[in-house]
Simulated scan of single mutants.
Amino acid sequence: MSQDRIGGFGGAAGAASGADGAGGGEYRSGFVSFVGRPNAGKSTLTNALVGQKIAITSDKPQTTRTVVRGIVHRPDGQLILVDTPGLHRPRTLLGERLNDLVHSTWSEVDVVAMCFPADEKVGPGDRHIATELAKLKRVTKVAVATKTDLVGPDRIAQHLLDIARLGADLGIEWAEQVPVSSVSGDQVHLLADLLIGLLPEGPPLYPDGELTDSPEEVLVAELIREAALDGVRDELPHSIAVVVEEMGLREGRPADRPLTEVHAYLYVERDSQKGIVIGHKGSRLKQVGQRARTQIAELVGTPVYLDLRVKIAKDWQRDPRQLRRLGF
């Protein structure tokens, strides 16, 4: 199996700030799943609510492949956000497994919030997902109009009417319809208020200050994949997978000069794709490494050495054995 590599260093960034602790009075906690078609703004909204990047974002469809839980701590409750892959018509075994992941998640949460991007009309893809959502009888449903910073007030108003009409057609009673912008922050806090109010009463489910339950290695692999997705051709994003083989503090370093070592493999399906990822004389892979190191350093709070190698796993999206090896 052929491979290429790149190594290097990146600077550190500040650690995440702590979240508010629980206050007195009625306290609510529970799980909310964001759903919608690919590129509907689910991951960006998750990050905006948590206040820190815990889900990768990209303009490429089907960027999210794992269930990432982001945790919002407030005095009146704890909101656990479940960012799932976009529900779509699958063309590979990977696509089928991602859809299964979405459906299984829906059955385990308290609220499902469907995202409708305001810069696009409500269409067949939205209707397909909403039809599946209508089959859930015991889950509270919320409609979120995302990306409102990209359109004017009249378009937002019409979008909300279209969402309401879709719900009426399918027998969905939206508990709330909320327009938000994750980029500008407009109404993000209001959405959090409304979601908290829909959760059952109960104690916190995660320790104060914990922002996600995803293992650090998974987050690092996703940050590398996000960097690799930037600027690649349309057919390539689905073929990229990343696995962190080894990660930890380098031994023998002074306590005041820690260094996190990350050894990861970036998998593609064909030799031609490998050439695209690496670029001329390794130029593109170097850019991927530089961007990923910066993001990883912000996550772990130390400088980072990243050893990134590219391998070919032929047609891995359709191969059950390779899917298992890559964590799907």
Rank of each mutant, 00 (worst) to 15 (best):
F34V: 06
F34P: 02
F34H: 12
V35I: 14
V35E: 11
V35G: 12
G36W: 09
G36S: 15
R37V: 00
R37G: 01
R37F: 01
R37T: 01
R37E: 01
P38C: 10
P38N: 15
P38G: 11
P38A: 13
N39Y: 09
N39D: 12
A40H: 12
G41C: 10
G41Q: 04
K42L: 14
K42H: 10
K42W: 04
K42E: 08
S43M: 07
T44D: 07
T44S: 14
L45H: 10
T46Q: 04
T46A: 14
T46L: 13
N47C: 07
N47Q: 14
N47W: 10
A48E: 05
A48I: 11
A48N: 13
A48V: 13
L49S: 04
L49Q: 15
V50W: 03
V50E: 00
G51W: 02
G51K: 06
G51C: 02
G51N: 04
Q52A: 12
Q52C: 01
Q52V: 09
Q52E: 15
Q52N: 01
Q52G: 00
K53F: 04
K53Q: 09
K53A: 03
I54W: 05
A55L: 02
I56H: 12
I56M: 14
I56W: 09
I56G: 00
I56Y: 13
T57Q: 10
T57W: 13
T57A: 15
S58H: 12
S58Q: 07
S58Y: 05
S58M: 05
D59V: 11
D59G: 10
D59E: 11
D59A: 15
P61N: 10
P61M: 06
P61C: 08
P61Y: 06
T63A: 13
T63K: 05
T63F: 06
T63L: 09
T64W: 09
T64Q: 13
R65Y: 04
R65I: 04
R65V: 00
T66A: 14
T66N: 13
V67S: 05
V67N: 11
R69K: 14
R69N: 10
G70R: 04
G70T: 02
G70D: 03
I71T: 01
I71R: 00
V72G: 00
V72Y: 08
V72A: 03
H73N: 13
H73I: 05
H73F: 04
H73W: 10
R74T: 13
R74C: 06
P75V: 14
P75Y: 11
P75H: 13
P75K: 14
D76C: 15
D76E: 15
G77D: 10
Q78T: 07
L79D: 03
L79C: 07
L79R: 07
L79K: 06
I80G: 01
I80A: 11
I80W: 07
I80V: 15
I80P: 03
L81E: 06
L81T: 07
L81W: 14
L81P: 01
V82F: 12
V82R: 01
V82K: 01
D83C: 06
D83T: 03
D83F: 01
T84E: 07
T84D: 03
T84H: 05
P85M: 09
P85L: 03
P85H: 05
P85V: 02
P85D: 06
G86D: 05
G86N: 05
G86C: 07
G86E: 02
G86W: 02
L87K: 00
L87S: 00
L87M: 15
H88T: 01
H88P: 01
R89P: 00
P90R: 03
R91Q: 13
R91S: 14
R91E: 13
R91K: 14
